[in-house]
Design a protein around this nucleic acid. Structure first.
Length: 209
DNA sequence: AAACACGTCAACCGCTTGCTG
DNA sequence: CCAGCAAGCGGTTGACGTGTT
C-alpha cells in the first residue's frame, strides 16, 4: 500500500511501432542480453522478458515473416514428429522462423491438419510421396544472408541431401551443430520416421547440452 | 447490417535451465 | 555446494480479423 512499493509497472499488450524502433536501436547499439535493464536504459516501460521476446521474434535481423512455404510446413511436420513440442529445436532448423511462430503455426494449421493427415496416411496410400524435398526451392529465400557463416565448413561428400534445406537449417541460428548426424542418417527425410523417434529424441536431447 | 462463431497470432506467464559469485 | 539472477522454453491467453448465419 505504500506508494513506494509500487513496482515500476511494466507496460503490456501489443508493441507499438515506436517501441519497436526504440528497442531495435537499443539492441543495435548495446547488443543483446541484459534484458532486465533494457527497459530502464532504453526508456521502454516493458519487462525484460517482453523486450527479449519482441526482439527475438520480430525485430531480430533475418527474421522471415509471412506464410510458411510447403517446404517449411513439411519440415515442421517431420521435425515435430521427431522432436515433439520442442519448438526451439524445430525453429532452429527453419531459417528465419522463431519458436513462437512455429508453435503457433503448428497449433493453428498443422495440428489439426496433421491429425487428419495421419489418419489418411495410415491407410494403404500412406506414401503420398516419399517426400523428396522439393529440389529447387530453398527454404529460405534470403539464403545468402545466412549461410555465409562458418557452419557449413563440412562439405561432406555424404551430404546426400539434394536440397539445400539442411545446409540452410544447419547454418542458421543458434549453435545447432550436429550436422553429421543430421545429414548422415537424415532421418528427417524419411517420410515414416516413427522408428527413429527414440534415436532422434535422445540425440536431440543430448544436442541441447 | 448485425450478431455470432471461429481462426490466427502476438504476447504473457510460469517453470526450468544455465551461469556466476 | 549453494543461492540468486538472467535467459530460454513451452503452454496458454486474449485481442483482433474474417467468415457465416
Amino acid at each position: 500500500m505504500d506508494i513506494k512499493e509500487v513496482k515500476p509497472r511494466v507496460k503490456k499488450g501489443l508493441w507499438k511501432p515506436e517501441e519497436d524502433v526504440i528497442l531495435k536501436k537499443y539492441v543495435e547499439t548495446h547488443g543483446e542480453g541484459n534484458w532486465a535493464s533494457v527497459s530502464q536504459k532504453s526508456g521502454l516501460m516493458r519487462g525484460g522478458k517482453s523486450c527479449r521476446l519482441r526482439w527475438k521474434n520480430y525485430l531480430r535481423p533475418n527474421i522471415k515473416r509471412g506464410r510458411m512455404s510447403e517446404d517449411e510446413k513439411d519440415l515442421i511436420i517431420r521435425l515435430h514428429k521427431l522432436l515433439g513440442n520442442r519448438w526451439s529445436l524445430i525453429a532452429g532448423r527453419l531459417p528465419g522462423r522463431t519458436d513462437n511462430e512455429v508453435k503457433n503455426y503448428w497449433n493453428t494449421h498443422l495440428n489439426k491438419k496433421n491429425s487428419q493427415h495421419k489418419t489418411t496416411m495410415l491407410g494403404p496410400n500412406k506414401k503420398k510421396e516419399p517426400q523428396q524435398l522439393p529440389p529447387s526451392q530453398p527454404i529460405c529465400s534470403r539464403n545468402s544472408e545466412n549461410n555465409n557463416e562458418g557452419l557449413h565448413g563440412r562439405k561432406d561428400e555424404e551430404v546426400t541431401i539434394k536440397s539445400q534445406q539442411m545446409e540452410d537449417t544447419k547454418s542458421f541460428n543458434f549453435d545447432v551443430e550436429e550436422p553429421s548426424l543430421l545429414s548422415a542418417n537424415n532421418a528427417l527425410f524419411f517420410y515414416d520416421d516413427e522408428p527413429f523417434m527414440p534415436i532422434w529424441d535422445s540425440f536431440a536431447f543430448s544436442e541441447a547440452f
